[in-house]
Simulated scan of single mutants.
Amino acid sequence: MQSEMEEDVVAQQRTYPEGVTSWVDTEQPDVEAAADFYRGVMGWSYAEATPPGAPFRYLVAQLDGKDVGAVGGPASPGRGEVAGTRWNTYVAVDDADAAAARIEQAGGFVVQPPTVAGEGGRSVLVRDPQGLEIGLWEAKRRLGAQVTNAPGAWNFSDLHVEDPEAAQPFYSSVFGWEFSDVGFATMIRVPGYGDHLAATVDPDIHERQSGVGVPPGFADAIGWVAPVTPGEAPGWHVTFAVADRDATADRVAELGGTVLRTDDGDWTHTALVRDPQGAVFTASQFLG
């Protein structure tokens, strides 16, 4: 029987319905160097998620003790292969085996079959029919990112592809996603997600997102599909929220990263960034 304190902790944890993007991580050749970079840029602390002596390290990044993402790679720099340094996005699933089967039935490919990640859960790595990788996460102890949209935390993940319309049927079939063209991009929605947020961690979401100019169904939004920009590789792209875009860009450069470009929009100031080992992400300052 749970104590009252344990029940309070469980009630405060953020959960993710099936089909909602729930986690991000990056695999890097030098884990310690990557951890130092993101500590300096995002203010992260870390919790070791792998036992001593394991050939692979997985550091869960945290803000104020709450999970926001992870940095992984070989336990010793240079000892172990890293297929490509990038940020990975994971979609929550209730059953990793069933989800992997749906991926194959819909024309995708299972790169890494359901794999136990300690007591945290089970992960699957898949490719969609266009060859773009995305992860699946069946949560056990680790439910997904516990802080989002705050400075230093994951904001959202977008699918950048050559043909946005061609990508949609696969994801609709596998995850039940719905797509809405709102002019500047195509919104990805999981029906009912806004109701889930309202009942758990964000009781005011429907009122807050009912104003003029807010796209219908925005409370259910989990990301966007957009055409790739010139020189950009197709794939899932991760955005982190920051308090000050310019200060973040300066810090990136100081710590050995590269600011590829900056953009000033009506709602955000952003910087497209490449970290010292090659992973690309966007730092976004919300202006509201």
Score class of each variant (00 low, 15 high):
residue 283 A to Q: 01
residue 254 E to Q: 13
residue 259 V to I: 14
residue 256 G to T: 10
residue 222 I to F: 03
residue 191 P to N: 11
residue 218 F to T: 02
residue 271 A to M: 07
residue 263 D to T: 15
residue 220 D to N: 13
residue 190 V to I: 07
residue 234 P to Y: 02
residue 209 Q to E: 12
residue 179 F to L: 07
residue 172 S to A: 14
residue 255 L to D: 07
residue 240 F to Y: 15
residue 259 V to Y: 03
residue 158 D to I: 03
residue 225 V to Y: 03
residue 211 G to Y: 01
residue 251 R to M: 00
residue 182 V to F: 05
residue 184 F to E: 04
residue 174 V to R: 07
residue 161 V to W: 06
residue 196 H to C: 12
residue 222 I to K: 05
residue 166 A to V: 06
residue 177 W to Y: 08
residue 282 T to A: 10
residue 215 P to C: 08
residue 161 V to I: 06
residue 219 A to T: 15
residue 165 E to V: 06
residue 263 D to H: 11
residue 238 V to F: 02
residue 245 R to C: 09
residue 158 D to P: 00
residue 168 Q to F: 09
residue 253 A to W: 00
residue 223 G to A: 05
residue 279 A to K: 01
residue 209 Q to Y: 15
residue 229 T to Y: 08
residue 241 A to F: 04
residue 285 Q to G: 02
residue 277 Q to Y: 04
residue 182 V to P: 06
residue 261 R to I: 11
residue 232 E to D: 12
residue 179 F to A: 05
residue 175 F to W: 00
residue 226 A to V: 14
residue 242 V to P: 02
residue 269 H to S: 13
residue 198 A to E: 09
residue 259 V to S: 05
residue 245 R to F: 02
residue 163 D to K: 08
residue 181 D to G: 01
residue 239 T to I: 10
residue 224 W to H: 09
residue 276 P to I: 11
residue 257 G to C: 03
residue 173 S to W: 05
residue 213 G to K: 12
residue 157 S to T: 14
residue 276 P to N: 12
residue 205 I to A: 10
residue 274 R to S: 10
residue 174 V to Q: 05
residue 173 S to R: 13
residue 246 D to T: 09
